[in-house]
Structures are given as C-alpha cells and as structure tokens.
Nucleic acid binder design. Structure first.
Length: 255
DNA sequence: ATGGCAGAATCGTTCTGA
C-alpha cells in the first residue's frame, strides 16, 4: 500500500497534476492540503473516473484538506474535537484498517505573532486528538504539511533560518511531541541523500537552486513503521508548468 | 526594511502562504 501527502496550493489549478501523478504512481491513498475550495465544487466525479473515492473538509480561499483512496473510506471525521476553529485543516478516515489522518498545520507567519500562538495551540490540540485516535486505531499514519522543518538537516540554510518561523525550537518541540506518541518520521527510517526538501519558494529560483525546506511529513505508528519499506519525496511535479510549491511525499507499506 | 512569486477574492489591491 502506497500512502502519500501533497500540499497542492489550490486543487482547482492543480487537479491535472494530481490526476497525472496518481496515474503514474498508482498511490493507494493521497492526502491533499490547501484545496482552497468548498465541498460543493470538489471534483468527486473526475477522481472517481480515475479510480479514487474521496472525502473533503473544505472552505473557500484558504485551507481545505482531502483524502483520496482506492479503497473505501470509513469513520470519516473532520477537524479536532473540542477545539474551536474556523479553519478546515484536519480530516481522518480509515482505509483498509489503517487510520489515515490528513493535516494542514498552521503556518504561524512569524515567531511571536498571534498566528504563531495559534499554531502552537493548534499543534498541542492535534497531538491530544492523535493520542486518542491511536488508542482506537493502532495502525495510524499522520500525513500532511506540518509547516515545521524538524531538524537543521531539513533546511537549506540553517543559519539564515535559525529561530525563524517553521524552524523555531517551540515548533520543533511540537513536532517531537508527535514522535513522543510513538510515531516515527517515515522519511528518516531510511538512509536518504543530503539536501532533500519538500517545499521551495516560488521566488528567486528557489527550486532551481534547491533552496528548500522539508516540511511535509508522513509519521507512522509502530506497526506501520515496521511495515514501511520506503519513503520518498517526488520532485517531478515541481518541475511542471504552474507547479505547487510543495512536492508529494510517499511511503510504501507492506501488505 | 521590504519585495521577490502564486492563488483567491474584493478583480483594485489586499491577504496569505512559508
């Protein structure tokens, strides 16, 4: 089973890339972030024609998350329970007995800002939610745009980014609280080349110069980590015309 | 100190992203 995550930065614009990528990779599950659309315009028919069922938790203009799957989606849940939030950032579903949690974590804008405080509160609330989900579904994957580069090796220029948004120590501590729940970063289960990132700024030739950050992640509970055979970031869609600024991340699970 | 690029809505210009 291949499970993946991709911040598409508008599904309306990126649907052709998504359909091409699904056809090329034959992914079984794809979590999307930043669909930026309401549920009523979500392209269910186009995805179904490609062989994928879908659940969507959307809103206009900002945020919006979806789970696409070749199998049935059961126990679909939106948002974080008991956390008041206008922003549609979380969607969970069970596919073939595996709990898939799709999250678009807040950006935070700048360290110390109101949005930064929201980000940290939001991350703590999600961790509580994931802890509860794990009790019911030990086979769990938390996939998404974390908006956190966990370590300096996930940053093209750690000196310039030191203590900046996406790299600050409180954000990294928030990332580690997911690891403390028993989850493992699928990418780091394997030897990886240096300077592998999942996001590059559109500006100043960020992609061509590989000035990127690894902020999109797949975290796996212990049984799924034991079943994980590979985890890769696919840069190919980032080279297309009108790309998302993020690349998809995909993990291969046995059976 | 600010903008660079991209997408969306309010179709100018502004907000947001990371």
């Amino acid at each position: 089973m291949k499970i993946a995550t991709w911040n598409v930065n508008s599904l309306k614009v990126r649907l052709p890339h998504v359909l091409d990528w699904l056809a090329a990779t034959q992914a079984d599950v794809l979590c999307l972030q930043e669909t930026k659309m309401e549920d009523k315009v979500f392209p269910y028919a186009e995805l179904e024609a490609a062989g994928y069922r879908a659940a969507h938790n959307g809103q206009k203009t900002y945020n919006g998350v979806a789970i696409l799957a070749r199998g049935k989606l059961a126990d679909v849940r939106c948002d974080i329970p008991d956390f008041a939030d206008e922003q549609r950032r979380v969607l969970a579903a069970t596919v073939d007995g595996r709990r898939i949690v799709c999250a678009y974590m807040p950006n935070g804008q700048a360290v110390g800002s109101d949005k930064y405080e929201y980000k940290l509160r939001w991350l703590a609330a999600l961790a509580g939610c994931v802890r509860e989900e794990l009790q019911r579904w030990p086979n769990l994957a938390l996939l998404g745009d974390y908006n956190i580069a966990p370590e300096d090796r996930d940053v093209h220029d750690p000196v310039a980014w030191k203590d900046q948004i996406l790299c600050s120590e409180p954000e990294r501590a928030a990332f580690r609280q997911f690891l403390d729940l028993g989850l493992a970063d699928a990418f780091r289960l394997f030897q990886q080349p240096q300077k592998i990132y999942s996001w590059w700024d559109y500006r100043q030739m960020g992609f061509r110069l590989n000035r990127g950050l690894r902020i999109d992640h797949i975290l796996l509970s212990k049984p799924l980590a034991a079943a994980c055979r590979a985890c890769v970031i696919d840069k190919a869609p980032r080279k297309l015309e009108r790309p998302s600024d993020h690349a998809p991340v995909m993990a291969t699970l046995e059976a």
